[in-house]
Computed example of a mutant assay.
Amino acid sequence: MRILLIEDEPGLAESVCTALRKERFIVDHVDRLATAREASLLAVFDLVLLDRKLPDGDGLSLIPALRAKNAGTHIIVLSAWGEVAERVAGLDEGADDYLVKPFALNELLARIRAVRRRPTELDAAEIRAGSVVFYPANEEVEIRGVRLDLPRRELRVLAALMRRGDRTVLRETLEQAVFGFDDDVQSNTLDSHISRLRKKLNRSAAGVEIHAIRGVGYLLREPA
């Protein structure tokens, strides 16, 4: 799961990022609306944590653009503005939840788990390919009924490939799904993750193979 945190309080932002990364989320942090708009054009986020009182405006003004880019993005507002009218305004603008500052990190994590369980029009309860089943709500993978534990980035690669069915996924799309803006990514890093994932699928008799489409990207399909 890739998360965009839009928060201008450095201490709070650091605490939230640390907590989310411990949960194996990919987290990008920005502290301005303008930077958030740029980030939303560069990557697709599963969840946005949105402060309201930002140096260049009210965070709620960003929600329409986030929805236009990806209707399936979950949005949780984090704000010190906690009056009923403010919370209603946030939810009416399109946020999935509204958490008033100060808050406990455990509560934030619980709210995130809750919104992830809510299906959107773009969500599927499960995605199948060969003998592999991917459950988007909790990002778990099973092969023939046995759970397959994967490192976070290999899981993101597999999820991106399975969501595309038998269509080629561009290399750039996979990199956006796997790496945050601050990650130090070498030219062969993605290939290394895919190589390890390919071996695990083969060992598990997954009934699907990852094929490289030279100069384009990768494709997940059943053996011929």
Rank of each mutant, 00 (worst) to 15 (best):
A137T: 05
R147H: 13
D149W: 08
L158Y: 00
G145L: 09
D182T: 14
F134D: 05
S131T: 05
V133K: 02
E139P: 05
T120L: 06
T168L: 09
V169F: 00
E154A: 02
R171N: 09
V133G: 00
L170S: 12
V185W: 11
P136M: 07
V146C: 06
A159Q: 14
L122T: 13
E140C: 14
R167V: 08
A159F: 15
V169M: 00
Y135L: 09
V133Y: 00
R147N: 14
S187N: 08
L122M: 13
E175K: 11
M162W: 02
E142V: 08
Q176C: 06
D184R: 15
L174T: 10
L155A: 08
G145K: 07
V157F: 05
A159H: 14
L170M: 09
F179S: 02
P136H: 04
I143L: 01
D123L: 08
D183H: 10
E139I: 05
E154D: 08
A160P: 02
F134G: 04
G180M: 04
T120H: 06
F181K: 14
E126T: 12
R147W: 13
G180D: 01
A129F: 01
R163L: 07
T173D: 13
L148Y: 06
G165W: 02
E126R: 11
N138P: 01
T120Y: 05
G130W: 00
L158I: 04
V178M: 04
P151T: 04
L174G: 05
G130C: 04
I143A: 01
A160G: 12
F134P: 02
D166E: 11
D183L: 09
V141L: 11
D149M: 10
R144D: 14
A124H: 13
R152W: 10
S131N: 15
V178W: 01
R167N: 15
A159G: 11
F134Y: 15
F181I: 14
D182L: 14
R128A: 10
A159W: 12
P136A: 05
L174Q: 05
E139K: 11
P151Y: 04
G180Q: 00
Q186K: 15
D166Y: 03
T120I: 06
R152I: 06
R164D: 07
A125P: 12
R163Q: 10
